[in-house]
Structures are given as structure tokens and as C-alpha cells.
Amino acid sequence: MNDDDRTTPAPRTRTPRTRTRRLFGTVLPALLVSGAVVGGAAFIKITSDGADRTVPTTVWAEADDAEPAKDPAGPIGRGRADTELTKKLLPVPPGYQLGPDMGEYGNDGELTGKQAVGRMKEEIGAGYPAAVRREAHREIDRMGIQGLALRTYRLKGGNGQGSLYAEVSLIALKDREAARRWYAVASQRGEGARKGPVIEGREHSSCSLEPETEMADIESMSCVAYEGDVAVVVVAQGAKPINRFTFVELVKDQLDHIASPGTYI
């Protein structure tokens, strides 16, 4: 074949559909996590293709001590256990107390499936193209969210471990496959996040140290995981350096409790 017979392939162009999928793949992981956290403790900044929005960060260290839970379904201070999903929330461990309220949901609350779906879709605001919002809405609908339970924890001071404030969110999905699908997306590390500690013995878990914020003395960490048909999001703040061992133990205890809820002691 002569050189004259050769043709140069036309350059590949990105179609609107390709651009939508790329943007969707960039923003959806953070949206799934931030939508599952009903308070201000998600430390996720999303920056892509003109969409730039930051989930507000609450300095929990400035919050007053929370009042103990008064729900008769569980011992005072351990947390409620009056539904199938709240029974799977880790009872407040020794050395901890219930943390600050997360807005209207308190420090020990539960959302219906409809409320949880609405919460997640709210995270996909007008700053994103309509095609991306529709794609994200369809993905959330496919997960078959049944409900969301949350509890906040505060590590009591005075024991040399430093401050730690955490919010645990459990998302009940329609089946294990939906939980696996959620995890495959949510575990993708966001822009600027660093690899966090490993939860030993928990293959389906992933932790990240979140990007630096304006608060030079505060550090943030998050973990996502799933156990059966339950997706788990744990986010925490603490004074630098955040106590990774304490945080990892909290996450591991929560995952163990889902596998074997047991009873309140």
C-alpha cells in the first residue's frame, strides 16, 4: 500500500453522552455519600466541569454535649432500637456518648425510604446539567432504598485519646446486589482525598482521609462499606492528628453489629 493510499483516522470526539457519563462518574460517588449523611459532617468537595459545590462542614468540637437518648426502646444513652434498622446501629460504646443533633433528625434518627431518596436527590442540585441529574436519579432509584438510620457519637474527653465526633448512617437497600452496586460507586475516592486506614478482615470497606479544609487544626475521615443489604457511611472529625485506631475500631464494631445485632446489654 502506498503512503498516498493511507488515510488518517478522524480524531475521536466526545459526544454529549460521553461527557455526561464522565461527569456522572465523577460526581456520583460523592453524592451518594453526602446524601446519606443528613447532618453537616460530610467533608466532600465536588469540582468538575463547572459544577462546584461544597457540603457545609460543622465543627462538632464547638457543639454542646448532647442529651442522652430518652427512647424507651433502649437503655438511656445507648441509642434507640425500636425498628429493624435502628437495631443495626451500633449501641453507644463505653467511652462514648451520643453526639450533637443533625438538624431536624436529632442525634439518633431514622428516615423512611422516600425521605432518604429525597435527601439524596436534593444533593444533585441545579449546578449540574439536566442529563447528569436524570442519570443520577435513575441510579438512586435502581438501588431500592428502604430507609436510612443515623446516630452520632462523641468520644468522651479526659482519656488522652483526643476529640472524635462521628456520624454513622445505615442505608437499607432492596438486596445485597444493590448494596454491592452502591459500594462500587461510593468507594471511589473523591478529588483530593487520601487513602485512609484499612479495616482488617473487611473486604467490602474503604476509608479516606478527606481533603484539607480551612480549619488547620481539624482533620476529617470517612469510611464506606456494606454488610448484607445494608450500606454503611461513617464520617468523623477530630483534632489533628485524628485518632485513626479509635475511628477504625468504631467502624469495625458497627460492621460486626450489623452481622450479629445481638441485644442491648
Rank of each mutant, 00 (worst) to 15 (best):
V234E: 00
Q237L: 08
S187Q: 12
A42C: 05
K240S: 09
R194P: 15
H257Q: 09
I124N: 04
E214W: 11
V198I: 10
S169A: 14
P94D: 06
E210G: 04
M221S: 06
A36N: 13
R189T: 07
S260C: 11
A41R: 09
T112D: 14
I140D: 08
T152F: 02
L155D: 07
P197W: 03
T8H: 05
I242Q: 05
P261A: 00
N2M: 08
A51S: 06
G158E: 08
C207V: 03
G147Y: 13
D101M: 03
D65T: 02
V27S: 02
L255E: 06
A30R: 09
C223M: 05
R14F: 02
A239K: 11
R142N: 14
S208Q: 13
V248L: 09
R154W: 07
A81G: 15
A178F: 11
Q254T: 08
T47G: 06
S208W: 10
A184C: 10
K114C: 09
I76A: 14
G125D: 07
V232T: 06
P93K: 05
V59G: 13
E104F: 13
D71W: 02
L89G: 03
L250M: 09
G147Q: 11
L28H: 03
Y105K: 12
A166H: 00
V33I: 15
G39K: 01
G118A: 12
K70M: 08
R6T: 11
V132R: 00
A63N: 04
G127M: 01
A239C: 08
V132W: 00
T20R: 05
G77Q: 01
E191F: 07
R138K: 15
L32P: 10
V230D: 08
E62S: 07
Y105T: 11
V233I: 12
E135D: 15
T152L: 01
A239Y: 12
V185Q: 15
D71C: 07
I46Y: 00
A30E: 12
V235P: 14
L85V: 04
C223T: 04
G40V: 01
T86W: 02
R53E: 10
P91F: 02
I171R: 11
T15V: 03
F43K: 07
R22G: 05
P197C: 08
K174P: 05
F247A: 07
V234T: 04
Q97C: 06
I76M: 12
I140Q: 12
E227H: 02
P129R: 06
G35S: 11
V232Y: 06
V55W: 13
E167Y: 04
G40D: 13
E219H: 00
G79N: 06
S48N: 11
K45D: 13
Y96R: 06
L155T: 03
E84P: 14
W60Q: 11
I199S: 10
E110L: 15
G190E: 09
K121S: 15
P100M: 01
Q237R: 06
V185W: 08
R181T: 15
E122G: 15
R6K: 14
D256Y: 01
V168Y: 02
I145R: 14
T26D: 12
Y264W: 09
